[in-house]
Structures are given as structure tokens and as C-alpha cells.
Design a protein around this nucleic acid. Structure first.
Length: 324
DNA sequence: AATAAACTCAACCGCACGTCC
DNA sequence: TGGACGTGCGGTTGAGTTTAT
């Protein structure tokens, strides 16, 4: 169902916005509020398409937009969220108040990816911001391919967070469960059919994904479920019973049960076979001793800390899952 | 000081998806 | 049911700015 480009009409301005245009847009939005972007053109005479108006508002004019450099905390969060979500900038932006998806996307491509590149050139397994800060920056534009590779590797990190929906028969509720696999056993293999380019593209993958990450991304849909968690209000998880201790399974399990949203993360014991929709996935090994205890309470940062606590990158090789 | 190269980021483009008729 | 429309998203572009030579 093809659509004509919304901004292809003749007579509409393009390019940088003028202060007058900004004022017209803001005046309109003050009265009418957001939405109905296409009406703006008709009702204000502003020579911009609705899409362009929305973008200008969302990325620039909206109140509470934080401008200026990203703090270290913000950068940390972006890196870890990107590790989880890949290039889903709007989701990432949702966790960074005052930042727009566009801004984060730009920041990622210009700054963080470069740092990652620099890090790799130095053979460092982990981000060491202090070293990076003191280091020189390489010309990213002339190394776009390299940069793409680095980004791909960063994105590959989300493989570890590849999640899947399963019927959770073990739980009282009919929560969906997400099995989150991780392993440090590099001997493990995975055997996942290739996805085609369109699939990858439609799932929001960065261009230049290597085969491994593309393959694994066939499970990307399951990330939706994890995304639901990210969309949740994590402050609500602070309640004691929102977190289930892993004691009754094993040290290898992280289990988060959020009644509010019907979503849980359910790890598996070593050598356990988890049933995924339409597939069986055997988890040969799960990294051990990586769990969040119930009595620690839970918030979003805890989850990120947990994710960050794993050694080195979560690569596809490290996932250790095999479709049976 | 000139200018070429590198970098930044606002804006554009195309696509997907939901809603309405 | 299917096409038109509105909106949102991720990828890309290119003008303006900064830095290096």
C-alpha cells in the first residue's frame, strides 16, 4: 500500500526553519495542541508539510528538550540501552528525559560509535571513558565502513538480550515469559536461518549488520516483549513482590515478574530446554551467578547493571542457543 | 590567511502501521 | 475489504561549522 511522500507538495518550504516559521508553529500548537499536523498547513498558512512540522516540534521546539552535551550517565545509558534494543532510538529516547530520538541517533553515530571504534583499535574489551577522552578521534567519515562494523558489533550485543515469549506454566499468572539467554561458553553453536534484508530492515536493524547478527535477529520480535518492560514504569517494580528471587530456581536465573504489565523475564537453569513459540531452544549453558536478588528491589538501572555485569560483549557466539 | 577535510546535527525521505471511511 | 490518510520511526543527506594543513 504505497503512499505518496507527505512533503512532496509544491510550494512548501524545505530546509532550515526560520524564526517566523517556528513562531507560527508554536502559536498554533499553543492553541490546538499536538496532533493533527496536517491541519497546521491549512489553518496557519505555514508553508511546511505536517510531517515537517511534527519533526520540528518533536526535535526542537518542544518544551523540556534538553540541549547541549550528553552527560556521562546519559552516555552510559545510551550505550547500554543500545546494547539491549539496537537502533530503536525512540525507545532509547523514552528513557532519556529531554532527549530526542534524533539527537540520540546523531550522538550515537558521531560520538559513541567513534569511541567504540577507538576502543576496538586499542583492543580494549570494555569502554574506558577516561582513556577514550584522552585519546585522539579518528576520522569517522573516512572510515564509514569500519564504523559500520563497530556499530554492528555494538548492536550484536543485543543478541544476548534476545528474548522470547513463552507460555509460563510455572507461574501463577498467565504472564508471558521471556527467556533471556546468556552464556560465556564460546564453544556453543547456534544454528539460525538467515533472515533476508527486508526483514532485517523492517525490524530496524542498522545497516551493515554482519551475518551473525542478522541471523540472530530473526528472534528480534521477541525483543518486543522485552521492550514492553522498557516501556514500563520501573518505579512500580520497586514493590517487593515484583521481583521474584532466583533462589527457587538456581543462581543462573533472573526472573522479574511485573504484574502490572503481564511480562516477566524467566531464565533457565543450566541444560534446561526452554520452549519458545514455534521453536525449541536449548540453552547449553547459562552464565552463572548473575542474578538480581529480590531483596535488592528492582529498578531500571538494576536491570541495566545486571546486563552490564556480564563479561565482555554479548556476542552471538556467546549466546549459546541452538534451535532444535 | 586560505582552503581542504572532517565533523555535527537539523531536516528530509521512504516505509510501516493504525485508523477511518 | 481495501484504499486513503495520518502519524511515527529509522536511515540518510547536506549545509553549516570546526579543525587541520
Amino acid at each position: 500500500m504505497g503512499r505518496k511522500p507527505g512533503c512532496s507538495k509544491d510550494g512548501l518550504n524545505k530546509g532550515a526553519w526560520t524564526p517566523l516559521e517556528d513562531k507560527m508553529l508554536m502559536d498554533y500548537l499553543k492553541i490546538h495542541g499536538e496532533g493533527k499536523w496536517s491541519n497546521i498547513v491549512k489553518e496557519t498558512g505555514l508553508k511546511r508539510c505536517g510531517k515537517s512540522c511534527r519533526l520540528r516540534w518533536m526535535n526542537y521546539l518542544r518544551p523540556n528538550i534538553k540541549r547541549g552535551n550528553f552527560s556521562e550517565d546519559e552516555e552510559d545509558l545510551i550505550i547500554r540501552l543500545h546494547k539491549l534494543l539496537g537502533n530503536r532510538w525512540s525507545l532509547i529516547a523514552g528513557r532519556l528525559p529531554g532527549r530526542t530520538d534524533n539527537e540520540i541517533k546523531n550522538y550515537w553515530h558521531t560520538t559513541i560509535a567513534k569511541k567504540a571504534q577507538h576502543r576496538q583499535l586499542r583492543g580494549q574489551p570494555k569502554v574506558d571513558r577516561k582513556q577514550i577522552a584522552s585519546g585522539s578521534q579518528n576520522g569517522a567519515a573516512s572510515n564509514l565502513k569500519n564504523q559500520s562494523t563497530i556499530e554492528s558489533q555494538c548492536t550484536t550485543g543485543m543478541v544476548a538480550a534476545t528474548t522470547t515469549l513463552q507460555e509460563n506454566t510455572a507461574q501463577d499468572h498467565q504472564d508471558n515469559s521471556i527467556a533471556m539467554a546468556q552464556s560465556t561458553n564460546s564453544n556453543l553453536q547456534y544454528d539460525i536461518p538467515k533472515t533476508n534484508e527486508n526483514e532485517s530492515s523492517s525490524k530496524g536493524l542498522a545497516s551493515g549488520e554482519d551475518d551473525n547478527s542478522s541471523n540472530i535477529m530473526m528472534y528480534y520480535d521477541y525483543m518486543e516483549d522485552f521492550s514492553k518492560i522498557l516501556d514500563s514504569d520501573f518505579t512500580k517494580f520497586s514493590d517487593v513482590h515484583d521481583i521474584i528471587s532466583t533462589d527457587h530456581h538456581s543462581n543462573n536465573t533472573i526472573e522479574v515478574n511485573g504484574d502490572h504489565h503481564g511480562v516477566s523475564i524467566n531464565g533457565c537453569k543450566s541444560r534446561e530446554t526452554a520452549e519458545f513459540p514455534g521453536k525449541l531452544v536449548e540453552s547449553d549453558h547459562w552464565s552463572s551467578n548473575k542474578c538480581i536478588q529480590a531483596d535488592q528491589g528492582f529498578d531500571f538501572m538494576s536491570l541495566l547493571s545486571f546486563l552490564d555485569s556480564t563479561d565482555d560483549e554479548w556476542t552471538a557466539d556467546a549466546l549459546g542457543t541452538k534451535v532444535l
